[in-house]
Every structure is written in structure tokens, then in C-alpha cells.
């Protein structure tokens, strides 16, 4: 994962509520065995709507996406995060996110910023013509007009994002603790610690 500390630039004022990951990337795009090239399929159905923000040249290549409540609900497909990255988005701002999507975004170095609906409304307005600035170090979002909001982020996630840490490598370094747990489980919860050798 690449380190990320600051995202600045234009933002796509999407604003829609309950955007599910089927909308971010429809199922027929999931047949790939790589992570690349999914930007083409991102928001495929929305791109067909007249006047949509995703085909508007004004927002081409914008690094920030603004959405409504419960962004990323539904399917656990990490392809949604890969599709956003591939279209150049490395930060999503919304009032709330689904649990699975926010985890997937984090693992791919995409910053998910939760702000109250009033802030979203103001950002939607600003984004039409102006850039937005998101700073992870100070946990703040600012506009060229003195607007400033701060956001919460899990301390561990912040650390990983700022340092670009490999979570699997970190956990593998705890291999001994995992082995200790496994030995204990073998004694206490043997029915969970193994599957019968006779099973198919």
C-alpha cells in the first residue's frame, strides 16, 4: 500500500445516498483475475444518466468523490475500491460508510472521510467550481473559502495510511502469538481448531 497523507484537487459532487458497490462496479466487471483496469466499469449505469457527474469533463481525473449516507453498502467486492483507484479517486467524503467498504478502502490506501450532512451539502456546492483539500495528518477538510471541518479516524488506520504499512507483514511478525493461540485452542476448543481428517 502506498503511503497517503494529503489529497487535494477537484471533487466529484455525486452526493447520492446508499450507493451500493453494485453501482460502483457491476458484477460483470468482477470476472477479472487482476486488480487493474476497473475504472472503465466504475459507475457504469450512472454514466448513462444524462447530466451525470462521472462523464462531465469538469471532474475528469478528480481525486475526491463526495457521496451521501451509507456509501459502499452491499457486496464486499474489493473491486469497488480498485475501480475508484483506477479512476483516480483516493478519497471519498460522505456522512457514513458501510463497514466492509471502509475496510476495503483503507487496505488500498483510499481515505474515507465521514463528515456531517451539512458539511457534505456545502462541499457539494464548492466542488462545482473549486478544489477541496483533505489532510490526514491534521484530520481536516478545507476549501478555498475558509471552510474547515475535522474528521475522526481510527488511530491504527491513520498510522498505517501515513506510513504505507503492509498489514499482512505486520501480522506475520506476530506469528508466535498466533501459534500460542493455536496451541491453546487445540486443547480448549479442539472441535474448532481442526477439521476431521475423515472429511471429504
Amino acid at each position: 500500500m502506498d503511503a497517503i497523507s494529503h489529497v487535494a484537487g477537484r471533487a466529484i459532487p455525486f452526493g447520492r445516498k446508499n450507493v451500493d458497490t453494485d453501482v460502483v462496479i457491476p458484477a460483470h466487471w468482477l470476472k477479472t483475475i487482476t486488480r487493474e483496469g476497473l475504472g472503465k466499469g466504475a459507475f457504469e449505469a450512472v454514466k448513462k444518466e444524462p447530466g451525470n457527474v462521472f462523464t462531465d469533463p469538469e471532474y475528469a481525473g478528480a481525486p475526491i468523490l463526495i457521496a451521501g449516507d451509507n456509501f459502499g453498502c452491499g457486496s464486499s467486492r474489493e473491486h469497488a475500491a480498485w475501480a475508484l483507484l483506477d479512476m483516480g479517486v483516493s478519497c471519498v467524503i460522505a456522512p457514513s460508510f458501510s463497514d466492509i467498504f471502509s475496510g476495503n478502502a483503507f487496505k488500498n490506501g483510499i481515505l474515507t472521510v465521514a463528515l456531517p450532512q451539512e458539511a457534505i451539502d456545502r462541499l457539494m456546492e464548492v466542488a462545482r467550481e473549486h478544489p477541496i483539500d483533505v489532510d490526514l495528518e491534521t484530520q481536516s477538510v478545507t476549501t478555498p473559502f475558509q471552510d474547515r471541518w475535522t474528521f475522526e479516524i481510527d488511530a491504527f488506520r491513520k498510522h498505517c495510511l501515513l506510513e504505507g504499512l503492509d498489514e499482512i507483514g505486520l501480522t506475520m511478525a506476530q506469528g508466535d502469538a498466533i501459534s500460542v493461540y493455536e496451541a491453546k485452542a487445540k486443547a480448549d476448543l479442539p472441535f474448532l481448531a481442526k477439521t476431521p481428517a475423515t472429511a471429504a
Partner: peptide, 22 residues
């Protein structure tokens, strides 16, 4: 519970996940 592909890799490699209690 459902997990993304990075977590699938994490579980394959370590049989664990890093989680916050819900």
C-alpha cells in the same frame, strides 16, 4: 462476516484478522 480480497489474503497468510469489536 464478509471480507474484501485484501482480508482474504490476510486470512490465507495468517488465519487471523485485525478487527475492532463491533
Amino acid at each position: 462476516f464478509g471480507i474484501g480480497t485484501s482480508e482474504v489474503e490476510h486470512v490465507l497468510a495468517t488465519q487471523t484478522l485485525l478487527l475492532k469489536r463491533s
